[in-house]
Design a protein around this nucleic acid. Structure first.
Lengths: 146, 146
DNA sequence: CACAATTCAATTGTGCACAACTTACATGTG
DNA sequence: CACATGTAAGTTGTGCACAATTGAATTGTG
């Protein structure tokens, strides 16, 4: 009777996490399409809007992504005319990712996005805040659990 | 001053969700590697262990995935010898996904996995339960928000 | 019955994630 | 200085996600 020892899908926090994450990016998708961005590209732009230029390694540290993901993504952002990659003068290994004027301009159009998502979430501000806290705690614990 | 109107990355629930989801599958990865499965493949197996055979559409409904994702994934599970796909007799459009004996056997090895994840999560059972509930509510709201 | 509309699965194409590897550059040590 | 060690970014290969399209089978309607 192999069925009984199988864990139930609907009992799993990880599946809930996986589903919620995909549902959230699905809500982002049409909104970000107006900006011509994917969700990971939007995250990179968020980091750069806070502070630029940034190295690829630095971006990777903020987002938890490696160069295998970021290199082609940044190449696409560069093709869109939103960023520029320049080899650093004092350390030729480093690539500094700069915002172009168009990249900076996009920031203002992106301002309303989080509110649109919050509206779609169907949770109160308090619930959202608590959720964010729990998720942050969970992520930290999971990273430590390797 | 484009910086001021940019939403802060660390304030975003969606990023917390995205990070937590990736961190969770990262913890699953080495555990599932012992079974030769990826996380989405494991999810498909979970559904089949509950009840089989299932059509591709049916699996997609349980997991929120479409045939574009499932068709190649199922082909890989079939190559691993865990499932078998058979065109249904009474409706030639449908493909019934059956477990092989090896696929059924794998269920017992998978039994201990959720506990190993729970241990890594660093949250109490109560917190996990509440998190799962909030995520389910969030996912449902986001799906309705299209 | 004919045929339009629908349904199921597969395919194609794009863009992540991530492991493993490569290349170029920098730095520390003898 | 020579050379081992380390580091930054890029490349390659695999496997999801997902949009859009295709092809085959079924169902609905006149």
């Amino acid at each position: 009777m192999f069925v009984t020892d199988a864990p139930r899908l609907d009992r799993q926090v990880c599946f809930a996490l996986y589903s919620a994450s995909r549902a959230a990016t699905a809500v982002y998708r049409p909104v970000l399409e107006e900006l011509g961005l994917t969700y990971p590209q939007y995250l990179v732009m968020l980091v750069l809007w806070e502070n630029e230029p940034r190295g690829v390694k630095d971006l990777g540290h903020e987002l938890g992504l490696d160069s295998g993901t970021l290199s082609p993504l940044l190449k696409r952002l560069e093709a869109l005319g939103l960023v520029e990659r320049r080899r650093s003068g004092d350390d030729e290994r480093r690539v500094a990712v700069h915002l172009t004027p168009a990249g900076k301009d996009l920031s203002s159009k992106a301002g309303a996005i989080p509110q649109r998502l919050a509206d779609a979430a169907g949770l109160t501000a308090g619930e959202l805040e608590q959720l964010r806290g729990t998720l942050a705690k969970l992520t930290a614990a999971l990273h430590g659990a390797v």
